[in-house]
Simulated assay, not measured.
Amino acid sequence: MQSTNDLHIKGLVYSSNKRVKAVNEAFGGLRSHIIYEVDTRYLEDGDEIKGSFYLVTNGGEREIPYSLRIQTENGGGGTDLPKDSQGLCKPCKEERGNSAAPL
């Protein structure tokens, strides 16, 4: 957020969703950034967190809506990790022409 009339803005920011929390609730200055943390525990790929930041400032009150979608690194499809030592050796055998010894 930025002051458009070169006056310092000071105030407090709150989130309506308990999973989203501003790191610093108080802010002030000509320019301010809302830095926030998101609690994604127990959420799965595709879940959505909706809410708003509410700013109470010396220049008035403001609502900033947000919508966050959870995206896991692998897209929620699970991992393709080998199940046993034979599975670990399979890529080696394919790459070396079956010359790798099993574990």
Rank of each mutant, 00 (worst) to 15 (best):
M1A: 08
Q2H: 04
Q2K: 10
T4C: 00
T4E: 02
T4I: 04
N5W: 02
N5K: 01
N5D: 14
D6W: 07
K10H: 12
K10D: 11
K10P: 00
K10R: 04
G11A: 04
V13W: 08
V13A: 13
Y14I: 02
Y14M: 04
S15H: 07
S15M: 07
S16R: 03
S16Q: 08
S16I: 02
S16L: 02
N17W: 08
K18T: 13
K18R: 12
R19S: 14
R19F: 12
V20D: 15
A22D: 08
A22V: 10
A22E: 09
V23T: 13
E25L: 03
A26W: 08
F27Q: 05
G28M: 05
G28N: 10
G29Y: 07
G29I: 03
L30I: 10
L30Q: 09
S32I: 03
S32W: 11
S32D: 12
S32Y: 14
H33K: 07
H33L: 06
I34C: 07
Y36R: 00
V38N: 12
V38S: 13
R41H: 14
Y42E: 15
L43I: 12
E44P: 05
E44F: 14
D45S: 09
E48C: 03
K50I: 10
K50N: 15
G51S: 10
S52R: 08
F53V: 07
F53K: 01
F53Q: 04
F53G: 03
Y54G: 03
L55G: 04
L55H: 07
L55E: 06
L55K: 02
V56R: 12
T57Q: 04
T57I: 02
N58M: 01
G59A: 05
G60A: 00
G60R: 00
R62E: 13
I64V: 13
P65D: 02
P65S: 03
Y66W: 06
S67W: 06
L68W: 11
L68E: 10
I70L: 11
Q71K: 10
Q71T: 09
T72L: 06
T72D: 14
E73K: 04
E73A: 09
N74C: 02
G75I: 05
G75C: 08
G75T: 11
G76N: 08
G77K: 14
G77S: 11
G77Y: 14
G78K: 01
T79W: 15
T79F: 15
L81I: 07
P82Q: 10
P82H: 09
P82R: 06
K83C: 05
K83Q: 15
D84M: 08
D84E: 12
D84C: 11
Q86L: 07
Q86C: 02
Q86V: 00
Q86G: 11
G87W: 00
G87A: 03
L88F: 11
L88H: 07
C89F: 03
P91N: 01
P91A: 01
P91E: 00
K93R: 13
E94T: 03
E94Y: 02
E95P: 00
R96V: 11
R96A: 09
R96N: 13
G97W: 04
N98D: 15
N98R: 03
S99Y: 06
S99I: 01
A100C: 15
A100H: 05
A100Q: 09
A101W: 13
A101I: 13
A101L: 14
P102T: 06
P102N: 14
L103Y: 13
L103M: 09
L103G: 13
